[in-house]
Amino acid sequence: MGDLSGNLTAPVKSGVELAPGMRAMLLNLIREELTRVTGRAQPAAVETVRLMTEKRLESRMMLADAGDNALTPRNMALACREAMLHWLVSAHYPLQHTADLLDAVLVAAGQEPSIPHTCPDLLSPWQKVVLGLLFIQGMRLDRAASFLGMSADPLREALSEAVTRVQGLGLRVGSRHRSAQA
């Protein structure tokens, strides 16, 4: 996969003008989702995801039939989720330290975080994206491949390489983590 940062994180002026109540609802949704996925809602990330979400809403409005309301809570939630995934892939997962990402994988599997933060940053940005989509977002391999616009083979390869790289961290068969025993 090429440059992961692309233009997905660059703030883009949105053409959507939301009423103050709708904007507040959208910001709350974004903060909640950022906190759920990353553990925090930093203002710069909230603003970037807001702009990305509004661009998606704008696209939905342009594609909607004349009588349809593209700004329903359901459409806003879907647009927010799409924007969050693109932000995670382009700006969050690739920049995470291996220990932080693996701890998030453990938490997503219902385990306690236990990766020593002194471990080296073993994973490439691409491997971090693959692990984030598969184990934190819970996507199946074929869905993650479709989301990224590619076949599943490069994802399988990245997953295999990532598992090989982190085996010395205690995430292997027989470790105390149930998620590693699958």
Results as ranks from 00 to 15, higher is better:
Gly2Val: 06
Gly2Tyr: 08
Asp3Cys: 10
Ser5Tyr: 11
Gly6Ser: 05
Gly6Asn: 09
Gly6Glu: 11
Asn7Cys: 06
Thr9Ala: 12
Val12His: 12
Lys13Val: 15
Lys13Ile: 15
Gly15Asn: 13
Pro20Lys: 01
Gly21Met: 08
Arg23Gly: 07
Glu33Cys: 02
Arg36Glu: 15
Val37Gly: 03
Thr38Met: 13
Thr48Pro: 11
Lys55Cys: 15
Met61Cys: 12
Gly67Val: 08
Gly67Thr: 03
Ala70Glu: 01
Thr72Ile: 08
Asn75Glu: 12
Asn75His: 14
Asn75Ser: 13
Leu78Ile: 10
Ala83Trp: 04
Met84Ala: 08
His86Thr: 03
Ser90Asn: 10
Ser90Phe: 04
His92Glu: 09
Leu95Phe: 10
His97Val: 10
Leu101His: 07
Asp103Met: 09
Val105Glu: 13
Val107Leu: 08
Ala109Pro: 01
Pro113Arg: 00
Thr118Pro: 07
Asp121Cys: 06
Ser124Tyr: 02
Gln127Ser: 09
Gln127Val: 03
Lys128Trp: 10
Gly132Asn: 04
Leu134Glu: 02
Gln137Ala: 10
Gln137Phe: 05
Gly138Thr: 07
Arg140Thr: 13
Ala145Phe: 11
Ala145Lys: 07
Pro154Val: 09
Ala162Arg: 02
Val166Gln: 09
Gln167Trp: 00
Gly170Lys: 00
Gly174Glu: 02
Gln181Glu: 12
